[in-house]
Design a protein around this nucleic acid. Structure first.
Lengths: 129, 129
DNA sequence: ATACTTGCAAATGATTTGCCAGTGT
DNA sequence: ACACTGGCAAATCATTTGCAAGTAT
């Protein structure tokens, strides 16, 4: 799978496995803690895997960057600034949005680096404004 | 204008004036340097002004948060990840996008905290993919 | 006079870099 | 063997906090 120049070190495998098993995006710190691998190594591996296109990272609200496998179906995220809930959405669900931005501004938007921040259905119902 | 409990200290006035004069979002560091005010004070004033709704901040690519007056017409930003160019857009220009997200996911999106990241017209023309 | 503000030093949190010892191939 | 990796300490960047001195009201 990834025998193109990359060694299969223990830390590397662990990081990959953890990302594979994860339900959502995880921080480098979390990975380091859970895997008992030094934070530095986690960062170095994530960076390397990111260069190889295997991993990518997102920013939800404030706070640390979060890492995910690049191959996931749900590629983009709606982040509720009230309850901090994260709703992953499939790329094609945002295609209409992308088309609109392309038509209107000639801009090819990706929503993979930053989440779309706002207020989720439940929180909108709950409180006014 | 802001005589509702706030003192009008020199640093405060300078920060506000600088933001008023600025063409786009600026970092706290830039303000501190340009105004010869301590970075700490700049941050403290920005934070305070943000709480009072006078100022807000955005994140374009990576790097420091950038501050703008809250009253600006161009409220949201398209950020090109290739050339780092920033295109401000008026809120109502993104209304169709917001409507779509609301209809589709019941999600009230704001694009004020994170820029919309992608590839601008010019860069899309320039290089393939 | 007094509470709000400042600057400076130091702390924090995320991420990166240097360096040497350890290990996959 | 040897280049690639890992851990640990220390550096860096953005931002925050503590504290004593300064200032707007």
């Amino acid at each position: 799978m990834r025998a193109r120049g990359l060694r299969v070190s223990t830390a590397r495998r662990l990081v990959l496995q953890a990302l594979f098993a994860a339900e959502g995006p995880v921080s480098a710190q979390q990975l380091a803690r859970e895997l008992a691998v030094d934070t530095t190594s986690v960062y170095r591996n994530l960076e390397l895997l990111e260069r190889f296109g295997v991993v990518r990272h997102v920013h939800l609200g404030h706070g640390a960057g979060l890492y995910v496998l690049a191959g996931r179906r749900e590629f983009e995220y709606l982040y509720c600034e009230r309850c901090e809930n994260v709703t992953p959405v499939a790329t094609h669900d945002l295609d209409p949005v992308r088309s609109h931005l392309e038509r209107e501004f000639g801009f090819r938007a990706g929503f993979t680096h930053f989440a779309i921040v706002g207020v989720c259905k439940r929180c909108a119902r709950r409180r006014r404004q």
